[in-house]
């Protein structure tokens, strides 16, 4: 299934009638790799949440593959998406259970998945609450990559990784054919040729 085309025209996303981000004008074609930029509070995170349907469209148009957005289209988009939020809450319970639920049903957890991200099997026996921020971030990335999403929505996904892991994540994502939207203060993304910048307009 190819990545979707996303078109935002004068789109304002918000919650209960209160606008939070926008108006945004942006067309994202399959395979596009965008680095969202703008000062803190301009709504970069909210734009990702709006695209995923966690905020409602209040004004303008939001189309996926030339069709105006609808709840079924949102659920379909989420199935193609890989989303990591900056808050990195994974929930509670054991790492093993979390991974089992987060990985696609056909995909088993391999030891190499963990070792590639400098984790050992021991992490599986821990509970999510006991993990450091960095460990949670690596687990979230492992589960997301295993799903091979068509659309990546990444919010500060390298914030708690060391340099070699940051390079690993960025080069992997840059090489995929998937569409990628990145919000990050990490200069490594800006230095990556595959990405073009999109400056989010500042709203009052």
């Amino acid at each position: 299934m190819p990545a979707p085309t996303i078109q935002l025209q004068d789109t304002v996303f918000g919650h209960l009638g209160t606008p939070i981000v926008g108006p945004v004008n942006l067309t994202i074609s399959p395979g596009d790799k965008l680095l969202l930029e703008g000062p803190s509070g301009c709504g970069k995170t909210s734009l990702l949440r709006g695209i995923l349907g966690f905020l409602n469209k209040l004004q303008g148009s939001y189309q996926i593959d030339n069709e105006e957005i609808s709840p079924p289209a949102i659920w379909h988009l989420r199935q193609q998406a890989g989303y990591i939020s900056q808050e990195l809450q994974l929930g509670t319970g054991s790492v093993r259970d979390w991974l089992k639920e987060s990985l696609p049903p056909t995909r088993e957890m391999h030891e190499t998945d963990l070792s590639r991200f400098q984790l050992t099997k021991a992490v599986l026996e821990q509970s999510l609450e006991d993990l450091s921020r960095g460990e949670r971030q690596r687990l979230a990335v492992i589960a997301m990559l295993a799903r091979e999403p068509q659309l990546y929505l990444l919010d500060e996904v390298t914030s708690a990784l060391n340099e070699s892991l940051r390079n690993l994540v960025v080069s992997h994502i840059a090489r995929t054919e998937a569409t990628v939207l990145v919000v990050s203060h990490d200069a490594i993304w800006k230095g990556c040729e595959a990405f073009r910048s999109y400056a989010l307009p500042v709203t009052s």
Partner: peptide, 22 residues
């Protein structure tokens, strides 16, 4: 309270009943 964890599950393709399971 865990809105972000919940959205992460939905945003990675979990259907509603799976996202609500925990």
């Amino acid at each position: 309270h865990n809105r972000s964890a919940y959205e992460s599950r939905l945003g990675n393709g979990a259907p509603l009943n799976v996202a609500l399971r925990p």
